[in-house]
Amino acid sequence: MTTDLVRHYTTNTESIRLARTPHGRLEFLRTQELLRRFLTPPATVLDVGGGTGVHAEWLARDRHRVHLIDIVPAHVDAAATLPGVTAQVGDARQLPFSDSSFDAVLMLGPLYHLTDPADRARALTEARRVLRPEGVLAAAGISRYLSALEAGTNGTLDTNLIPSVETVIATGDYDGHVGFTSTHWHTADELRAEIQAAGLDDVEVYGVEGPAWAALDVAGVEEFPTRMHAALHCARLVEQDPLLINASAHFLAFTRSPSDA
């Protein structure tokens, strides 16, 4: 798994993904918005799987003290050049830090790359361990309905693709059928349950992009400036609506570590 991820992300950085498509740009704006609701600067933030620092960079500008770990050495080298950011190679399942070291832990990618439930549980347990009492965990997931909405909107959903889409909706096992690498995709309830199983209660899950993201992609990058505000309003309106939350491409879950941790 690690070798495949290093190979994939050597040429496919998160910063490129978030800028390339309208829904990526919407995801970036909403991730900033949601994180800023829960993070009060200056906090000591651990960005687990933070890539080249696409989020660490603006968090440092917000006066947070950001330390990033990633499994791709080239990404760590790039992140370490950012002002206010330190970085090292590391694995979400075995964090090289002592207990209660950080005010906040961000897991904006590891959970969907860890396709074994036991590995996701280990990563969440590690996040809880290094959080200070009442520290914030922010954990992202990919919606099981992403490819159904994307392919159904852009015209590529056909009889050949339907079996793979049905599988990911039913099981969360994504086989790479619309690009990307093999991953685990969540429902909002599943993401919440996995975090709770790690001993972290009061989990709030938010839909990041809302239901308009796929239509933004069809409209194209040139239309993004004129359509962005309506899409943002839509995402905010239904960000925790149980009937529409799974229509987002991504989720972002927040919780706090126990005060007596």
Rank of each mutant, 00 (worst) to 15 (best):
G135V: 10
D47M: 05
R65Q: 15
T21P: 04
G90L: 07
D119C: 00
G24Y: 03
S248A: 15
Y145G: 01
A74T: 11
Y174F: 13
V6P: 03
A170Q: 04
G176N: 04
F251T: 00
A87G: 01
L108D: 05
H250D: 08
A230L: 07
P96K: 13
A148E: 08
R30C: 15
V85L: 12
V165R: 02
I71G: 00
R61N: 10
R120N: 01
Y112R: 01
D202T: 14
V238I: 12
T11Q: 15
S248T: 02
V48R: 03
G155I: 12
L149Y: 10
Y206W: 15
T31N: 07
V205E: 00
D4F: 01
L157M: 15
A127Q: 01
H23F: 10
Q88H: 07
L95H: 02
V208W: 12
R93I: 00
A79N: 02
T187C: 04
A249E: 08
T10K: 13
G176H: 02
L46Y: 02
G152D: 05
L137F: 09
V165T: 06
L244E: 10
G50Q: 05
E14D: 05
A249I: 04
T81P: 03
T40F: 08
S259Q: 08
F254S: 03
Y206D: 00
N12D: 09
V72N: 08
L5M: 12
A212V: 05
T159E: 10
I162K: 04
M228N: 09
H8V: 11
S259K: 10
L26F: 11
H250R: 14
A197N: 02
G51E: 12
T183F: 00
S257E: 06
L244G: 03
A104H: 13
D70V: 06
W213I: 02
A118C: 00
D91H: 02
L108E: 04
A118V: 01
P211T: 03
L111F: 05
P225H: 11
I245N: 12
L243C: 09
E194G: 02
D116M: 04
Y112L: 05
L124A: 00
E223V: 06
R7W: 02
L82Q: 07
T10Y: 00
R7F: 09
L232Y: 01
L216K: 11
V105N: 03
D70E: 07
Y174V: 13
A188M: 11
A78G: 03
Q88E: 15
A56M: 11
E209M: 13
A78H: 12
E204H: 12
Y206I: 04
L35G: 02
E194K: 00
L237R: 13
D175L: 13
I195W: 02
F102Q: 09
L191T: 10
E166K: 02
E150Q: 14
L124K: 01
A198Q: 00
E33F: 07
L59S: 06
T81M: 13
E27A: 14
H233D: 15
E57L: 13
S100G: 09
T13K: 06
L243D: 15
R227K: 14
H75C: 09
H64E: 09
R192N: 05
P117E: 02
T125E: 00
Y112C: 12
